[in-house]
Simulated assay, not measured.
Amino acid sequence: MISTPDPWWPTALLAVALFSDAVVSVRPPAFIQQCLHGVGFPREWWWTLIVVKLLAAAGLVAGLRYAGVGVTANAAVIAYFVCAAYAHYRAGFLKQEFWLNCLGMLALSTAVLLLSYTSTL
């Protein structure tokens, strides 16, 4: 069974990054608005991304204590950013926001999974 993350701090860092992203997305700055418009994500659905990021952060934090929860949340975060990358690719919106934000978070979440959970498998 997959236990809690070891080391724990990369998972905590990813949780803080997702929580911060959710908080910033409440009143999204221009670069986030451009990104969402660029991929054609409807404005009336923007709130769902905040909910997803908050739930992901909560899952990662819960996973620091409860076995299996963190790795599941981490895998879901990776899936989220894979879907976001596909949305960017499909829309042809491959500007700086894609490379820095989307792929950056995908790389971070993948690195956290590998660093924190491969030693527990």
Results as ranks from 00 to 15, higher is better:
1 M>E: 08
1 M>D: 07
4 T>V: 15
4 T>D: 05
5 P>G: 02
5 P>I: 10
6 D>N: 14
6 D>F: 02
7 P>K: 10
7 P>F: 05
8 W>P: 04
8 W>V: 15
9 W>L: 12
9 W>S: 06
10 P>D: 03
11 T>H: 01
12 A>Y: 10
13 L>N: 02
14 L>M: 14
16 V>T: 10
17 A>Q: 01
18 L>W: 03
18 L>Q: 07
19 F>W: 10
19 F>S: 11
19 F>M: 11
20 S>T: 10
20 S>R: 04
20 S>W: 13
21 D>H: 15
22 A>Y: 08
22 A>R: 01
23 V>E: 01
26 V>H: 09
27 R>S: 10
28 P>C: 11
28 P>T: 10
28 P>Y: 04
29 P>T: 00
30 A>V: 15
31 F>C: 05
31 F>K: 07
32 I>W: 08
33 Q>W: 08
34 Q>K: 14
34 Q>S: 12
35 C>N: 06
35 C>K: 13
36 L>W: 12
36 L>P: 00
40 G>L: 13
44 E>Q: 12
46 W>Q: 09
46 W>K: 01
49 L>R: 11
50 I>Y: 02
51 V>D: 00
51 V>C: 02
51 V>P: 00
51 V>T: 11
52 V>A: 09
52 V>H: 04
53 K>E: 05
53 K>D: 01
55 L>A: 09
57 A>L: 05
58 A>K: 05
62 A>K: 07
62 A>E: 00
63 G>N: 02
65 R>D: 07
66 Y>H: 14
67 A>Q: 09
71 V>D: 01
72 T>Q: 03
73 A>E: 02
74 N>I: 14
74 N>Q: 14
74 N>D: 08
75 A>R: 13
75 A>Y: 08
76 A>M: 12
76 A>S: 08
80 Y>M: 13
81 F>R: 07
82 V>W: 00
83 C>I: 15
84 A>E: 00
84 A>T: 10
84 A>S: 13
84 A>H: 09
86 Y>L: 15
86 Y>G: 09
87 A>M: 12
88 H>E: 00
88 H>S: 03
88 H>L: 11
89 Y>P: 01
89 Y>F: 14
90 R>W: 07
91 A>V: 10
92 G>N: 09
92 G>W: 14
93 F>C: 01
94 L>R: 13
94 L>T: 11
95 K>G: 03
97 E>C: 02
97 E>S: 11
99 W>D: 06
99 W>Y: 15
99 W>G: 06
100 L>C: 08
101 N>I: 14
102 C>A: 14
102 C>T: 15
103 L>S: 03
104 G>F: 03
105 M>E: 04
106 L>I: 12
107 A>E: 01
107 A>G: 07
110 T>P: 00
110 T>Q: 05
110 T>G: 04
111 A>F: 12
111 A>G: 05
114 L>Q: 11
116 S>M: 02
117 Y>F: 15
117 Y>L: 06
119 S>F: 03
121 L>W: 14
121 L>R: 11
121 L>S: 02
